[in-house]
Design a protein around this nucleic acid. Structure first.
Length: 105
DNA sequence: GCGCTTATCGCAC
DNA sequence: GTGCGATAAGCGC
């Protein structure tokens, strides 16, 4: 069961093409909401694990942010690895070419 | 329904 | 670079 808010978050995120990333701020903005945290909360419980690429969501400054319910740890490293595998350069827990890979709705 | 927590952001020091 | 406040949703009681 997913809340309407989370459902919208997943829908937007699903439109992000491979090799690109988006931010919590962008997601919240397109949802006409300022609940940046709520976006993360929605992604924290991700019932559409493979369908919704939550690893393509980063912070507004390009930092990785969190993954699988944690802001630091093994999952975050895996998130970085996934992004690298899609052509996104990540340096020191931050997206190197953030401005190039940032997808705007 | 109320209160606490949270994958954040923006501004001030 | 670090700290504080604001804002909105999720979860538990």
């Amino acid at each position: 069961m997913v809340s309407s808010f989370a459902q919208r978050v997943y829908d937007r995120l699903c439109r992000v093409p491979k090799g690109k990333v988006t931010t919590y701020r962008e997601l919240a903005h397109v949802l006409n909401s300022k609940a940046y945290r709520a976006v993360g909360l929605a992604l924290r419980s991700n019932p559409y694990a493979p369908n919704v690429p939550c690893h393509r969501v980063v912070q507004s400054d390009g930092s990785i942010g969190g993954f699988k319910g944690t802001t630091c740890g093994q999952p975050v490293e895996e998130k970085i690895a996934l992004l690298k595998g899609e052509g996104v350069r990540v340096e020191n827990n931050r997206v190197a070419d953030f401005d190039r890979v940032l997808y705007r709705f």
